[in-house]
Amino acid sequence: MPVGYHWHLRRLMAERGLFATTELVPLLAQRGVRLSREQVYRLVTGIPERLSLATLAALCDILGATPGDLVEPYRKPSSARPASRLSARRAAGPVALAPDPAPPEVAAPAPLPRPRRARIAPRP
């Protein structure tokens, strides 16, 4: 079964009175984690795919939290069919499928004009 996770950094920051992502930049830097404002913004507003242990430890220290408070794993429901139904279909053999109906004709949107390169004129 696939696993996902919820990222609770924004909620934990709000509970600690930190409402601006830029407030984290100096707090992380004090703990040896150098991230740009943009990186911290993405860390707070998005769900990170990769996170160094040093950054995770610094966030836990700043927020007085544990890694389990920041990351909440959960199981995603499986979209696959049960194996018994699949094996029953395979045992029955191939099934003739009706051809797909032709899609209705849709006019393609007009292409957008391309931007032109700016020309810098010399100063008079």
Rank of each mutant, 00 (worst) to 15 (best):
P124Y: 03
P82A: 05
P124C: 02
R123I: 14
D69F: 03
R50C: 01
R119L: 14
L43H: 10
S84I: 07
R37D: 12
R10Q: 14
A20P: 01
W7C: 09
M1C: 03
T22D: 02
G32E: 04
P104M: 02
R90Q: 12
A107Y: 08
P122F: 12
P103W: 12
R34V: 12
V25S: 02
V44A: 10
G68R: 09
R11A: 11
G4R: 00
L86P: 00
P111L: 15
P111A: 13
P124V: 07
A29K: 10
H6Q: 14
Q39H: 10
L51T: 10
P77D: 09
P94K: 07
S52F: 06
T45M: 08
E105W: 08
P48Y: 06
K76D: 12
L43I: 02
A102L: 13
P26W: 01
R10M: 08
R89N: 04
T66R: 13
W7I: 09
A110T: 11
L18I: 15
D69C: 04
G46W: 01
A108C: 05
R42K: 15
V25W: 04
G93C: 08
E72N: 02
A91C: 01
V40Q: 03
S78H: 05
L56D: 02
C60F: 04
A80F: 05
A29M: 03
P26S: 07
R34K: 09
E49G: 07
A118I: 09
Y74M: 02
I62M: 10
A107V: 12
H6T: 12
P122V: 03
P2V: 06
S84N: 11
A83R: 02
A98G: 07
R89H: 06
P103T: 00
E38H: 13
V106N: 01
G46D: 03
A65F: 03
L86S: 07
P2G: 06
A80S: 11
V95M: 05
